[in-house]
Design a protein around this nucleic acid. Structure first.
Lengths: 205, 205, 205, 205
DNA sequence: GATGAATGAGCCTTCATTCAT
DNA sequence: AATGAATGAAGGCTCATTCAT
């Protein structure tokens, strides 16, 4: 019983390691098995098939990210802009640690999109992510209409997403990416928030 | 003669359509052929192999885009911010028209990067694109150091890129995308440029 | 009219050149066409298909060889052993000039053997060749029974054939082959004929 | 375990059968598989690829033959000519039993000769075979120079080789071949050895 | 609980061959 | 008389997946 659980974990871990450096299509079951130190047939004991394995793999980190963002949002010691920066950094870190999963969530490229279970789950998480972003925007400028909040939520997301996409498929080291990219993102967030404050909240004054 | 050219085009178009929704590895020659309404062997009449097809597919539109941006940059009747907005709109239009390819250029996902010919060509164009962006930034704020210009060039690019990536894999209509996305992008560009002016050029005042 | 014949010839020549350096399977119609400076479809104007081309190609040289051997056999200025040597040399030359045809005749490997027309024609020629050999043996020792003549004909043929097979698939230069191989063959023929004289014709004495 | 070994053998056998009647290029993996009563993919379970299969196929029997010849050479109860005859018979038997492979060794037809591992191994064995032959010749006439021994070694080999080549691609029964061919070969060997003795060793007298 | 054995589907590519001009 | 366009069949090979133990 114990052993079985351990094997299952080893497989998941091996797969996640691989998914973090290679894309879905280029990963083979045998490769995963090798890393997990078991036969490739053993994988089928625990996972229906390759895409099942990916789902199982993908959901938890996504949830983690969503939770993490939520937690940041409600942290009291941070000012609204600070929160946004931390979130941005969090997403960058996440994208680096889960390189090819990130792509998977956003560009549902490789996964059969017709498997509703999965894409709906993923969509749920994605939406919760958007929502968090929107809420933080509202924290920054509480006078925004719902519509404006949505719009600026997207704007911010686009900036973060674009940043991430610029390296997501490269082989660059995580550290090097962070050093290069985080300062740019933080400054961009400052600018954007400033713009949002200036333009959309004259009444604050 | 006529017919042959037409077939070649059909193949190219089919491939580009597919490349717009799937990654290199998951696209098969037979799939392309089916879409192009010809036999998969016919493809080999016009393209050496799969990777050749991709190259042929990618380079020309990229060049067009680069040229277009360059032309905008040197237009005299536009103020610097206006130029940036036009460029942003241009890239969005391009990404919609070549939904297919945009991904390919930026996320060199699938292509064996060790094939120098290709990646160098693509990189060249990509760099010229970056450069144009940088130059327009400098037009907006001539007091920037080279380094700052580079940094803000990237920042702007990330915003545009992120915007584009948000729909590039969807099936949404071009018009609908434009309506939804261009206002956000233009406002974002305003904010960013404003930030760049405020922060990096206090001496202007 | 003229032109057509010329094209046909060019094709045949190109094919024969190729067959002399490569094996049937590795030669492609396009390759032949290229060498013949015409389209590969043109070949089908003159030859039913690839194997037809080979047949047309194979018979004449074989006939030539058979005739040549016959002529040698009836040359008056040569003693019987001399004739055999000249024949041996002739076969070696032939095998060098028609490297891959030689193989084809003897090891009917590549050609569909069920095409009776061809194999029968080839067999006919092959038999006439054997016959010539037998007759020369009889010239050397007229006291042989028919059966013995057949047997020694084979023996001689085996020696020649084995010699040829030793280089037929190599890339060695014709000249080098000749220098290396002809002396051995001639001496072998001497020995064999001597043996045939000694043993099978004591009555001559 | 047992089963796997059996399958592997079946594949090897099927391949060898095919190699005995067709050339490397014309044999397909699927064809082998059909004969071996398994899927063509199964072959890849046991052999890296087509050429690997051929290697595995070729080396062992060749080694066996080389050893066998060596053993004959050093047998004390046989006179030199007798040894040669036994060797000749051995090679004929071998070629009949491995009809399949004989061609492969000698006419390295099909194998990419640039794969050094393989051709070197095969060449090694082939050379050892030649050497054995040479040594037996020297046993017959110890007064030969090294060069002469080499030359006569070849001569003998050509006779044997030619004999074998004459039936190697036929469907004739082993027994029938032996009856037809061995007497001829033995007599040929007698003649050749006699010639070698007469001519190359006058000093013996 | 785990695995070795086996397979079918499918991929890229080549080639002889036919069709239409 | 000749050719460019197009194709089906086939080949080597890989991979996810199933079966039997």
């Amino acid at each position: 019983m114990d052993k079985s659980i351990e094997t299952k974990k080893r497989i998941l871990f091996a797969a996640s390691e691989l998914f973090s450096i290679k894309s879905y299509d280029t990963i083979t079951m045998r490769e995963i098995a090798k890393r997990a130190n078991c036969s490739h047939t053993t994988i089928y004991l625990y996972y229906k098939d390759k895409s099942d394995l990916l789902e199982k793999l993908a959901i938890p980190p996504l949830l983690t990210l969503a939770k993490r963002i939520d937690r940041i949002r409600s942290r009291k010691t941070l000012d609204p802009l600070g929160k946004l920066k931390v979130i941005g950094r969090g997403m960058i870190n996440f994208s680096i640690e889960n390189r090819s999963l990130y792509l998977t969530y956003i560009t549902v490229n490789s996964i059969k999109v017709d498997e509703d279970d999965f894409s709906s789950e993923i969509n749920a998480v994605r939406n919760s992510l958007f929502n968090s972003l929107k809420k933080v925007i509202l924290l920054n400028n509480p006078y925004l209409t719902e519509e404006e909040a949505l719009k600026y939520g997207r704007m911010i997301f686009f900036q973060i997403h674009g940043t991430i996409m610029s390296y997501i498929n490269s082989n660059e080291e995580g550290l090097s990416i962070r050093q290069r990219v985080i300062p740019i993102l933080e400054e961009a967030l400052e600018f954007l928030i400033q713009g949002i404050l200036d333009k959309a909240g004259p009444q604050i004054k």
